[in-house]
Computed example of a mutant assay.
Amino acid sequence: MELRIAGTVNDSIVDGPGIRFTIFVQGCPHDCKGCHNPQTHDFNGGIIISTEVLLEKIKGNPLLDGVTFSGGEPFCQAQALASLGKEIKKLGLNIVTYTGYTFEKLFESRDQNNWDELLKVTDILIDGPFILEQKDWEIKFRGSSNQRYIDCQESIKQGRAVETDP
């Protein structure tokens, strides 16, 4: 499968717990004022890369604790990320997915656009749009205080957002 990405970071310590391989997908419908990654908004920007190439890069770093899907909006490329996520899970790595959608929106619409498949491989979901007026430098792994750090698998089981500590 292929993904349209803005880029990757091999050894991130700011995109979730531990050392992470971060994939910044290209394309975002949210247009959040003050976005940290505005270059990822254009759905026609970035580069096309195969998920197999990304998987080989991930396998090439033995120090990784996990992989982060950021953006852009990962749920706009849910099918390809879910497929890649299944292979990442086989490596014993965890997955953090950032989204401008809320868990509630994703869960209620999970049968559309392969959103359910991406939720199923996500360990931690960091949800909600970035709100510049709620920007907070003190919270881990989030840009604004409205964004939640969610145990995605427990949330799926309970049918509601279950927040956890980073």
Rank of each mutant, 00 (worst) to 15 (best):
G45W: 04
Y98C: 04
G18H: 11
Q112R: 14
K57N: 15
K135V: 12
I47C: 00
T40E: 03
Q112A: 08
P129C: 10
P62C: 00
D136Y: 01
T97G: 00
V121K: 09
T68Y: 02
L3T: 03
K90V: 05
D42V: 02
A161D: 01
V67Q: 06
S109V: 01
S12K: 06
S145C: 10
G92V: 03
I126R: 04
T164W: 00
K105N: 09
Q134C: 07
I131T: 15
G128C: 10
Q147L: 10
A6S: 15
R20A: 11
L84S: 00
G7M: 05
Y101T: 05
L118Y: 11
L63D: 13
R160N: 02
I88P: 05
K157W: 02
I126E: 05
A82S: 09
I88D: 09
I156A: 03
I19E: 03
T102Q: 12
L55M: 10
Q147A: 12
K120E: 14
P38N: 12
L81P: 10
K135E: 14
D127A: 07
I124V: 15
L84T: 01
T22K: 07
L84I: 00
P29T: 11
F75A: 06
G85P: 05
D42R: 01
G92Q: 04
V25W: 07
E133I: 13
I150A: 06
T99F: 04
